[in-house]
C-alpha cells in the first residue's frame, strides 16, 4: 500500500512541474488512481482483519521518494516518468501480478486488477519515452542509467532475498520475506519477476538488451 501512496505523492508532485493544463490533469488523475489502489488494498486488509502498513518514511521508500524529488527539483519531467513508470511500476506490476495469481478470492482479484491498470500506465509512459529517446538516444540512455543506479539499487536492496541490514521498516513489525512460502511465493520469485518486467520495459524503450542486462546484473543481491 505504501508503494501506491508514494506513487500518489509522486504524481501530485509531478503535476506541479507540468506546463500544459492537460499534463497537469493527467498527473492528478494518476495520483487519484494510485490513491484508489491504496484504498482498495486497505479495504482488502480490513476484510482479513489486517491493518495494512503505510510507512512512506521507511528507509527504502524514503530513498525512492527522494530520488523522485530530485527529478522534480530539476523540473525533469522525463526523469520523473522514468523513475515512476519504468522503475517503480515494473516492480509493482510484476509483484502484484504474482500475488494476484496466488491470493484467493477478492484479494487476488484486487491485486490482478491493479497490476493490469499499472501495466496500462507503463504502456502510456513507454510511448512518450520512446519518442523522447528518438531525438537523442545516447543522452536518453545515460539519463536512464543514472536514475537506474539511484533507484534500482534501492529497489534491489528492498527486493533482496533477505534483509541483511536489519529491519527496513517496509513491512510492519516483522519481515514477511521468510513467510512468503506459506502463500506459494518467495522473495526470489518476486525479485526475479520484477527485474524481468523491468528489463522488458527497458526493451520497449529501445535501449539495447546487452546494455540493460549488464545494468541489472550489477545490482546488489
Amino acid at each position: 500500500m505504501t508503494g501506491e501512496l508514494l506513487a500518489a505523492m509522486n504524481y501530485t508532485s509531478l503535476s506541479e512541474i507540468c506546463d500544459e493544463p492537460a499534463e497537469v490533469a493527467d498527473a492528478l488523475e494518476h495520483a487519484e488512481a494510485e490513491r484508489g489502489h491504496a484504498a482498495a488494498f486497505a479495504a482488502e486488509g480490513r476484510k482479513l482483519g489486517v491493518d495494512v502498513a503505510n510507512n512512506v518514511e521507511a528507509r527504502h521508500w524514503k530513498r525512492l521518494r527522494e530520488a523522485f524529488m530530485r527529478c522534480i527539483t530539476e523540473r525533469d519531467f522525463m526523469g520523473c516518468l522514468i523513475v515512476q513508470e519504468i522503475m517503480l511500476e515494473s516492480f509493482a506490476v510484476a509483484s502484484y501480478a504474482r500475488v494476484g495469481k496466488v491470493a484467493p478470492g477478492s484479494l487476488g482479484r484486487t491485486f490482478a486488477a491493479i497490476a493490469a491498470e499499472e501495466e496500462e500506465h507503463i504502456a502510456h509512459a513507454t510511448a512518450i519515452l520512446r519518442t523522447e529517446r528518438g531525438s537523442d538516444a545516447p543522452g536518453f540512455d545515460e539519463k536512464v542509467y543514472r536514475l537506474h543506479l539511484d533507484v534500482m539499487t534501492t529497489l534491489a536492496r528492498m527486493l533482496a532475498k533477505d534483509c541483511r541490514d536489519g529491519h527496513c521498516d517496509v513491512c510492519d513489525a516483522t519481515c514477511v520475506k521468510p513467510s512468503l512460502f506459506e502463500v506459494s511465493l518467495s522473495a526470489a520469485e518476486l525479485r526475479g519477476a520484477s527485474l524481468r518486467q523491468y528489463l522488458k520495459t527497458l526493451d520497449m524503450l529501445g535501449i539495447p538488451g546487452e546494455v540493460t542486462l549488464a545494468w541489472v546484473a550489477q545490482l546488489p543481491v
Partner: peptide, 22 residues
C-alpha cells in the same frame, strides 16, 4: 562487483529474458 554466489545465480538466471549478450 563481487561475483554472485551460486544460490543467487540459480535464483536469478531463470528470470533473465532472452537477449543479446555481446
Amino acid at each position: 562487483h563481487t561475483p554472485l554466489p551460486d544460490d543467487e545465480i540459480k535464483d536469478i538466471l531463470p528470470w533473465i529474458p532472452p537477449r543479446a549478450v555481446c
